[in-house]
Design a protein around this nucleic acid. Structure first.
Lengths: 154, 154
DNA sequence: CATCGATGATTGACACGTCAACTAGCCCTT
DNA sequence: AAGGGCTAGTTGACGTGTCAATCATCGATG
């Protein structure tokens, strides 16, 4: 006979459902707000944020690893951002294969304008919903899940 | 002078960062696994799951509201799924504008095959990382955030 | 019965992410 | 110096999501 399907308990199912629902609604709203008040996608935002945190100039691969993306994603992203004048690419003298990706003044201005609004949205949608204890609990839970996943292959 | 940027506290920032990281890694892995072991996207999965839960036949708009999507997203999605033979569209006799979307036998088989694997991945990636108390806490937190967001416009 | 606003659904253009294949330069070994 | 394998990065095709515009129909109101 078939292996008996091993469903989740109602409590487990409830936790998973709530998490998924929150995650979708939260990320969805935040993305739309970032878009609409700064003309940037969340991807643009994080790339520029990390890049300027690091001084505005970084090796392509370092940036890619920092944000934990696939290289081809970053390549496409940087290409689009370059087309819009937010960053430029420069050749790397030390390594013929390499590239630096550099925030332009327009890019710096974009992230500086967007950051306070972004933080405000995070606060209003998420932080304000929870007590500090709840935030701590969530932080702890998220880290548990992360380390658990890191132990697994893939 | 400019309004002082109102940054998050380190604890708040930590909670947000952990949540985002977990969320991205978790959803990313789960999507890839669903893709690779059932040739379905997460979107296919949820549409078929909700549809078959409801008996395999539902009004377009009801389905759209059930999964909380935009109607154009559902329209594209259903179009693609129809092309692959997972669902069909039928005219609605009661309402000339309306459509029924119906799971085909192939669609039913696809979701039946995929569901146990999907549950297994959720369990391994997520449920197994946490105690029941932690799951309850997360559930509570997620619901708090959801009701908080629902109070806000947009 | 004319029409006007709301609802049901589609479409097209575009941005985004993934996968797999590819180019090119690096470095180690022989 | 000649390979061979690794790392850096690009490319193209494809599936997906969003937005805004569109179209048809329904239902109420005059």
């Amino acid at each position: 006979m078939d292996a008996p399907p091993n469903w989740l308990t109602p409590e487990q199912q409830a936790a998973w459902d709530s998490f998924i629902r929150m995650q979708e609604k939260l990320i969805g709203r935040l993305s739309r707000r970032v878009q609409s008040d700064s003309r940037m996608s969340p991807a643009d935002y994080i790339v520029l944020a990390k890049l300027t945190e690091a001084g505005g100039r970084m090796r392509f691969m370092d940036l890619t690893k920092l944000v934990e993306w696939e290289k081809s994603r970053m390549s496409h992203q940087v290409g689009r951002m370059a087309k819009r004048g937010l960053v430029t690419k420069e050749d790397c003298p030390d390594d013929g294969r390499g590239a630096f990706i550099v925030a332009t003044p327009a890019g710096r201005k974009a992230i500086e304008d967007a950051a306070p609004l972004h933080v405000e949205h995070v606060r209003r949608l998420f932080i304000d919903a929870l007590t500090q204890d709840e935030l701590d609990a969530l932080s702890h839970i998220a880290n548990r899940v992360l380390t658990h996943m890191e132990k697994q292959s893939d």
